[in-house]
Design a protein around this nucleic acid. Structure first.
Lengths: 363, 363
DNA sequence: TTGCCATGTGTAACCGGTTCCAGTTTGATT
DNA sequence: AATCAAACTGGAACCGGTTACACATGGCAA
């Protein structure tokens, strides 16, 4: 690989001038032409590592996710990457895979000059984010520290899920979660339980082993069959539940209604199509990236948080017991409303109304 | 952030000694203790950028994918990342999103010192990989250049797909593809068509607009309904086809049988479960990484290619017209057999038999 | 005693850029 | 004509590490 000095020599100028040629400084027209020629002939591309060392900035953002096989996270990564690219940043996807050890290693590596900032959707080792010296924003999770976070209104989503199942005439309800308790899962469950309590309905909780994501929960078929309404904490779990019920000979939604959370692509395509609480994933990615960029520019955003509205996508899996429509119905019951489902599906950028909360003091 | 010089000063030694402390060289016991103490007190972590500049190696591998929302690629990324991590390399996921421009930018950035090697599953701008000076391995695609590639036996897979539909008693067959013609898609189609020709069966081809991945192909419902057997070039397309047929009031597999390709997680969970030609994604990732690592170590592997066996996973969407079993049946008709479905599902590492072909001369 | 090797440490050059500063040339202003 | 600023360029320091080399010291064999 040619270096800046090779170019300089060939063009008959100094390295400093070549550097200015690339970074915008005084360069005379003849010099400029000579450098252009040398660059072309040598196929010179500035070395990004050397540049990063000198600039003390790599223009790289690290995104730490707990899983890459749950489509929610690739969809999030897509949104973050888009927004980063717009601002000339590159995205490095780090899949912690549920291992706190791996996550810690990623954080350390990212902080060691590798990245200018971190967006994380994993909360396994919150303390590790505290003293690393580069900006951190969390999305879909809350870190213990004062790092800004972007989350959906999970609590309202939980309430919506309950009301949806109730409208479908369901009485014996179950919340289906996983062992690692994220703030997101907790909020969803609390909303669901609170709304049930208010309605005087009892709800059971089942913590399924999530070790094999996409698991069919086979060993839990009997358990699931006891209910006629299930709120799965995310869409992947909903798919697993529906599949399990199917294999146990139960019909969804006739015997059991199921509602998920996230509105990943597959929810709309599944047969029966899966009712779910939609998060605006692209907006989450956009907002998180924006916050991070502001922090990288030096702003202090401690305690600045975004809370995004969610929306009920009522599809086939929560049809009423008497049968019901097959069309998706949108119900922005609580929180702010969001853009239309069609727009989301085609990736348009929605600037949904945000609730910005300041829970801590910026200095 | 503390530098190596801060540590050196605090420990009362030179920077070179601290460097040796980290990289293994002669360091006396008392010196070692002093450095350890200083490192701990300062929370020192070596700067990876400076290290990369000096070592002329970043220990980073770039993985370029054409899409991140098709679960095949996250599953591949997972496998590659695992293998990289084992060897002390980090993975950078680059989502070209079908844009040749974006892909080119990624390649250039990766080659500019950012990465030590590239694994690509995109073939949009093959020439761009030619003169970049770092090792390149392609997976699931073939580059024009002599870069080693790891692919599944797509041709045999196409033949299996035909035989599967034929066994299910289907007569009016369709191949469902997308406009961007990858070598993978071509091989699958050719295998399918050749086997059909051999059997004296005519087959139609439909090139669906893939712009919106996960599209329901709504505008094509009439067209799809004309057939009673569809071979979708990948599982995502199969999901789209099944959904479209469902909305058009056609039953799968009663009216139309559908078979996909890849065996992504959702294929097994979908209702009806989707028959598909399984690629051993984890093995593809493992093999590609291994080849790349060998190239990074200096080996010349021009023309060394891996061809991995595929396996028919016969599920519900290709049940016979008279109805049929609901269980998955495995059919390793052509090519080498692979590990059991169960093992795959749980992510065990299979060392499937490989066919290694040498199509060019290493020097 | 001499010589040699293993061990331990510091100095300085280097990786490939960026940027401050100083110096030269040119053109416009007073 | 003298002054000054703008345009242009090179030298050298610096970013934070690694490593070749020189220089100690001490133990052991010849």
């Amino acid at each position: 690989m040619a270096t800046i000095h090779d170019v300089a020599q060939r063009a008959g100028v100094s390295g400093a001038t070549v550097s200015r040629f690339f970074n915008g400084g005084y360069v005379g027209a003849p010099t400029r032409a000579a450098i252009e020629k040398a660059v072309r002939e040598l196929g010179y591309v500035p070395n990004s590592v050397a540049r990063a060392l000198s600039a003390k900035s790599s223009r790289v953002v690290g995104l730490v996710v707990p899983s890459i096989t749950n489509p929610f996270f690739p969809e999030l990564a897509y949104a973050v990457e888009e927004e980063c690219a717009k601002r000339g940043f590159r995205l490095v996807l780090c899949n912690a895979g549920g291992s706190a050890e791996k996550e810690k290693a990623f954080i350390e590596a990212l902080a060691a000059g590798f990245a200018d900032g971190i967006i994380t959707s994993t909360g396994n080792c919150g303390e590790a984010y505290d003293r690393i010296g580069i900006p951190v924003v969390s999305v879909d999770r809350e870190l213990g520290s004062g790092a800004p976070h972007v989350t959906s209104d999970n609590y309202s989503g939980g309430r919506m899920a309950f009301r949806c199942l109730q409208r479908a005439g369901r009485k014996r309800l179950l919340f289906l979660g996983v062992p690692e308790e994220s703030t997101s899962q907790r909020r969803r469950r609390e909303g669901f339980l609170d709304e049930a309590r208010r309605a005087g309905v009892e709800v059971d909780i089942l913590v399924a082993n999530d070790e094999a994501e996409y698991s069919t929960l086979c060993d839990q078929a009997d358990r699931l069959s006891r209910y006629d309404g299930i709120f799965a904490w995310n869409d992947i779990a909903a798919v697993g539940a529906i599949r399990t019920l199917h294999q146990a000979g139960k019909k969804v939604p006739r015997d059991v209604a199921v509602i998920g959370f996230d509105d990943i692509h597959i929810a709309r395509l599944f047969i029966p199509s899966i009712s779910t609480i939609a998060q605006c994933i692209s907006e989450m990615g956009r907002a998180a990236t924006e916050l991070l960029m502001r922090m990288i520019s030096g702003e202090n955003l401690v305690g600045v948080n975004y809370l995004l509205g969610v929306e009920l996508m009522e599809r086939e899996t929560t049809a009423g017991k008497q049968g019901g429509g097959h069309e998706t119905t949108r119900h922005p019951e609580f929180g702010d409303s969001r853009g239309s489902g069609a727009a989301r599906a085609y990736g348009h950028h929605l600037h949904s109304r945000l609730r910005t909360s300041h829970t801590g003091g910026g200095s």
